[in-house]
Design a protein around this nucleic acid. Structure first.
Lengths: 125, 125
DNA sequence: CAGCATACATAGATATGCAAGGTATTATGC
DNA sequence: GCATAATACCTTGCATATCTATGTATGCTG
């Protein structure tokens, strides 16, 4: 029963983490493009390596399509000498402006939450 | 047209901020209860004052019910000598454990995102 | 040419925040 | 005593983004 409860708790925490990411991932993806173009799976690897965010493929492609239809990124197919053709995404000018706005909103929210979490720090209770 | 575009952009940013809060608000609410019990509207005021998070009532009551049915908080009606009866919410033991887990997950996510945002800092581009 | 890895894509289910509107109780002015 | 306002809590319906699972196509390799 302990194992059951633990498993359930972990599941719930997992679902919650899913919710936590909403919105945040859009910013994360745009941010990876700040320094230059990347293709889909390359972004996933960078998100994992740089930020510890493991994002499934089924999440990033719809997200990229949304960002594209909103005019924040553009895409172009690039055929390599060897290997499969890849779809590279780049930030548009509008996208650059947007990342800054989003980053600002993120920082405001994060600072507020940090303040609320301060009382927990080092409290053994 | 400029005004139109600006307005539309702000609307979109607003919708995005809604997404950004998902999950985060649950943590924020539980965190306000760390130091002691509070009633609904009191929480809203504290969230606004301490963290700059303005949360509408339509958000917090369903949220509190969820947290209660999941066993993270308990509630009790308290009748004051003067004034209206208030429903006070407190953290359960399970709730305390949970806040810690959530705070840990939040920090991991926030650190990762900060790393991704680092290249934007002071980049005039 | 069969199997495997790479790369992009889609559909349905689920969860959450919000706006709008509602009920009940207490305090206040006249 | 009665109307009005303020406090406090609650419910419904909708919009939105992500995940799971699955599908398609291409190129490499033995």
């Amino acid at each position: 029963m302990d194992t059951k409860r633990t498993a359930a708790t972990e599941d719930e925490l997992g679902k919650w983490e899913t919710q936590l990411r909403k919105g945040g991932l859009g910013l994360a993806v745009l941010a990876t493009l700040w320094t230059g173009r990347l293709y889909g799976l390359e972004m996933l690897r960078r998100l994992e390596a740089d930020a510890g965010l493991s994002v499934p493929e089924g999440t990033i492609y719809p997200l990229l399509n949304r960002l594209k239809s909103e005019g924040f990124v553009t895409s172009e197919w690039v055929e390599a000498d060897a290997g499969h053709p890849r779809k590279y995404y780049s930030l548009t000018e509008r996208g650059r402006v947007r990342v800054r706005e989003m980053a600002g909103a993120w920082k405001g929210f994060a600072r507020g939450l940090e303040r609320l979490l301060a009382p927990l720090e080092g409290d053994p209770r």
